[in-house]
């Protein structure tokens, strides 16, 4: 009798999983039918054009990659550093707990709010304009809470016996964190970070808010360069009346999906690689 609820739960879980996967498959299939014909080397390396057949996504693709790299460069050191501070050095004071609750809440704030903050802070107050730096800073704020939370999670999972082993040899706290704790936590930190960044690469709202939706027909050439990203290019094409642009949008979605899947695969690969190295 005990086995029955167990079996039932398994069946329900499997059904739900299949449903989710089926929905995803249907979505991808639909986009694939619409856009696959448009995928070509010319499409990837082409620039925007008024004629749908000759328009490409090179500017948006490089924009996305560039923005996400700058986002990572900003958010990873700050996020990991903050998590180390909170987890290893922070006291269990009321203030620390307040900060903790706030970070959890920040992770749930709608992304457009970050866009408004980015517009006010980076674009206007700090005078960055509608630049790559402003966009990346905004996205860095957006992913920071997630990076902090997953890093803390990973640090907390490191067994105390490892820290004790290090302390017992006369290691300082920082030596213990740097040489023993961080390497063990690294797979978890990497996975969380890549997943957070892959969320950022699909974000549209905050970047539209800070004004990245200007017509950009060139590859960004520096932190102060104007830019556009794939989701915005897709948004742009979808809102055009001509059906040929819809096909372009579908093809660009496929490229974005491929980029996302590659990042997630990289997360899995990195985690496995480090876990193998440790065991």
């Amino acid at each position: 009798m005990r086995r029955l609820p167990d079996r039932a739960f398994q069946a329900v879980a499997l059904a739900v999983l299949c449903l989710a996967l089926a929905a995803l498959a249907a979505l991808i299939l639909d986009v694939w039918r619409d856009g696959a014909s448009r995928l070509s080397w010319d499409f990837l390396t082409g620039f925007p054009s008024r004629r749908a057949e000759s328009a490409g996504i090179w500017h948006a693709l490089t924009g996305s990659v560039f923005v996400i790299l700058v986002t990572a460069a900003l958010a990873v050191p700050i996020g990991v550093g903050a998590a180390i501070y909170l987890e290893e050095y922070g006291t269990r004071s009321l203030l620390a707990r307040l900060i903790e609750i706030n970070i959890t809440n920040l992770a749930a704030v709608p992304s457009i709010i970050y866009g408004l903050l980015g517009l006010g802070l980076f674009v206007r107050a700090l005078g960055m304009g509608r630049s790559v730096l402003a966009g990346a800073s905004t996205l860095a704020l957006l992913v920071l809470p997630v990076i902090i939370l997953t890093t803390r999670e990973a640090l907390r999972a490191v067994p105390r016996s490892i820290r004790e082993g290090s302390y017992a040899l006369g290691a300082t706290k920082w030596q213990t964190i740097w040489h023993q704790v961080l390497p063990v936590a690294l797979p978890g930190i990497l996975t969380g970070t890549i997943l957070a960044l892959s969320r950022a690469i699909g974000e549209t709202a905050p970047l539209i808010t800070i004004g990245a939706l200007t017509f950009v027909a060139f590859v960004p050439d520096g932190l102060w360069s104007p830019f556009t990203v794939l989701p915005i290019q897709i948004f742009n094409w979808v809102s055009r009346p001509q059906p040929a642009f819809q096909v372009n949008a579908a093809a660009a979605i496929l490229v974005l999906l491929a980029l996302l899947l590659t990042m997630n695969a990289a997360a899995v690969w990195l985690r496995d690689r480090y876990q193998k190295k440790l065991v």
């Binding site: 067994p159 016996s161 490892i162 004790e164 082993g165 290090s166 017992a168 023993q180 390497p183 063990v184 440790l278 065991v279």
Partner: peptide
């Protein structure tokens, strides 16, 4: 230590 704890 009582429980051996080699570093990974």
């Amino acid at each position: 230590f009582q429980k051996s704890n080699p570093f990974p």
